[in-house]
């Protein structure tokens, strides 16, 4: 059986908020390394991979691998009943047809108990190859979100170019064009506010802004985001948590 306790419900609430507009139904795979999820969006353009590691749980017990087939809209409805600071306990039998969620406040005088019906989801798992990326950029997640939102008002696509000069986001649309260039600017006192760029080789790729804006819904998970790029392979956007991550992969737009 599964029994997993999070000190703060906000962890799972933020993860679900981050991915619910990209995927609807997905398996939460529970095993001795924690709770993992991998799912593609309906159009098979983007993929999300999530891992909540056992170290992030105040209590974690999972005797055998259990797949929890969950509709994320339904899960979000149940999670609305949890306050951010509540302790959350997830419980499921070995072959479950429901997931039990218990929310307890810090004063220990309120216990909320919910059951979420589970579904059978036949989900394809993709093998994600180890990739040496040509460029890796670490920057404040709020700034990346602002750039994506601003450019999405002008165009459907953004060209991302990483060179030794910096990383440039540019787009052209019906009303005009726009570009934002970030130069390497490490912040010694507050690393989360700095921008670092590791460049192995120049990279130039084009991506759909609709997806990037969607990924930015994960900004609440981390102050920083890591963007990894290589020519002609999917972009990797990673939001790292204290004990886990949410990663988004996006296939590029190719040719003209």
């Amino acid at each position: 059986m599964l029994e997993a306790r999070l000190e703060q419900s906000s962890v799972l609430k933020k993860v679900v908020d981050a991915i619910k507009d990209l995927v609807q139904d997905c398996n939460f795979d529970c095993n001795d390394s924690g709770i993992q999820l991998q799912a593609m969006d309906n159009s098979h353009v983007a993929l999300v991979a999530m891992h909540l590691k056992t170290e992030g749980f105040a209590l974690y017990r999972c005797d055998r691998n259990i797949a929890l087939g969950i509709n994320l809209v339904s899960l979000q409805k149940v999670l609305r009943a949890a306050q951010n600071e509540d302790v959350m306990t997830l419980k499921a039998e070995d072959s479950p047809d429901a997931l039990s969620l218990v929310f307890e406040n810090s004063e220990n005088d309120r216990i909320s108990e919910y059951d979420l019906k589970l579904m059978d989801i036949d989900q394809e798992h993709l093998g994600i190859p180890e990739t040496e990326y040509g460029a890796t950029v670490k920057m404040p997640s709020a700034e990346f979100q602002r750039i994506c939102r601003d450019l999405s008002l002008l165009s459907e696509s953004v060209a991302i170019e990483a060179t030794k000069e910096g990383i440039k986001f540019s787009c052209t649309g019906d009303i005009g064009k726009g570009a934002v260039t970030l130069r390497q600017n490490p912040n010694v006192e507050k690393p989360e506010l700095g921008t670092t760029i590791e460049l192995q080789e120049p990279v130039a790729l084009t991506f759909s802004l609709k997806y990037l804006v969607n990924f930015c819904k994960a900004s609440g998970l981390s102050n920083t985001v890591t963007i990894s790029l290589s020519n002609e392979v999917p972009l990797l956007i990673e939001y790292e948590m204290e004990h886990g991550y949410v990663r988004f992969y996006l296939a590029p737009k190719i040719g003209d």
């Binding site: 593609m40 098979h44 353009v45 983007a46 993929l47 394809e124 798992h125 993709l126 093998g127 994600i128 190859p129 459907e156 696509s157 084009t206 759909s208 392979v233 999917p234 992969y249 996006l250 296939a251 590029p252 737009k253 190719i254 040719g255 003209d256």
Partner: peptide
């Protein structure tokens, strides 16, 4: 603006 590639073209079934 290019043609949108499919993620399954890059990541194979496992």
């Amino acid at each position: 603006e290019g043609t949108q590639a499919n993620i399954t073209n890059f990541f194979t079934g496992a």
